[in-house]
């Protein structure tokens, strides 16, 4: 099964083109890094995949469901972690998770079981009774990832999930998400941080709304470093390493 298929997707904000004929396909259990500098169109693409913005041109299929024709069925297959935290700080982890579960139609013992599973997967089970405000940035992020897994999606979208976190926490979170992909979940990870990409990862380089490259990190780098290859493709001066 194809977890995600993006075909010739274009998007404009008024006169400004944000995405132009973007196409790629993501298979089951694949980890794919969507690499691009700030303003490349990553967040716009994520907004389309999350159906916060409608598709203006092209087609998106999630787990064999056309996003435009069957948006609710398609969204039910997606877990999303936004760049900006979407947590209620004054509620406990459990309450935040229960709220999200309910938005996906899960309640009662079934919801609690799935929440426990998702939290355990991210090593957060013992924090379920704590208020989110008391958690550090890394734990909050892990909680958001766990939350995105409650309804057992086929596709996990993460939009620059490690922004603002220290190197050690970033590494721990990327490792967690790689493990999720290894267990069969398809992952699209948007980032502008090249060091979050492993050699074996598939990388799509997005720049100025266009796909500039689509290959494994090792193939993309060739005999250079991935950073050099990326800089060459984007000419990005603002790259964070």
């Amino acid at each position: 099964m194809t977890a995600l298929e993006v075909e010739n997707v274009g998007f404009r904000y008024g006169a400004r083109t944000a995405l132009s004929a973007v196409s790629f396909r993501l298979e089951e259990g694949q980890f794919c890094a969507l690499l691009g500098p700030n303003g490349a169109g990553k967040s716009t693409l994520f907004s389309i995949l999350a159906r916060l913005n409608d598709i203006q041109a092209g087609r998106v299929t999630i787990a064999d469901c056309d996003l435009a024709a069957q948006p609710l069925k398609a969204l039910a297959q997606v877990g999303i972690v936004f760049q900006q935290p979407t947590l209620d700080l004054d509620m406990t982890v459990q309450r935040n998770m229960m709220y999200f579960a309910a938005l996906h139609g899960l309640h009662g013992a079934r919801a609690r079981r799935k929440i426990e599973q998702a939290l355990s997967l991210l090593g957060m089970a013992e924090r379920s009774t704590e208020k989110v405000r008391t958690l550090n940035g890394g734990h909050r992020r892990r909680m958001e990832i766990a939350r995105a897994l409650i309804h057992e999606p086929k596709l996990l979208l993460l939009d620059e999930p490690t922004v603002g976190l220290d190197a050690e926490t970033r590494r721990a979170i990327t490792d967690h998400v790689h493990n999720l992909a290894a267990s069969g979940l398809s992952v699209l990870w948007a980032t502008h941080l090249v060091d979050e990409v492993d050699d074996g990862d598939r990388v799509i380089v997005l720049h100025e709304g266009h796909v500039r490259a689509d290959a494994t990190a090792a193939d993309l780098a060739g005999n250079r470093s991935l950073v050099d290859a990326y800089l060459e493709l984007t000419g990005a001066a603002e790259t964070s390493l």
């Binding site: 999350a50 159906r51 916060l52 609710l72 069925k73 969204l75 039910a76 997606v78 999303i80 936004f82 900006q84 935290p85 979407t86 947590l87 209620d88 999200f100 938005l103 996906h104 139609g105």
Partner: peptide
């Protein structure tokens, strides 16, 4: 502005 509206609007409900 805080982002939590996105959580609501991406739920698989009309």
């Amino acid at each position: 502005e805080m982002g939590s509206m996105r959580l609501l609007l991406t739920a698989p409900l009309p």
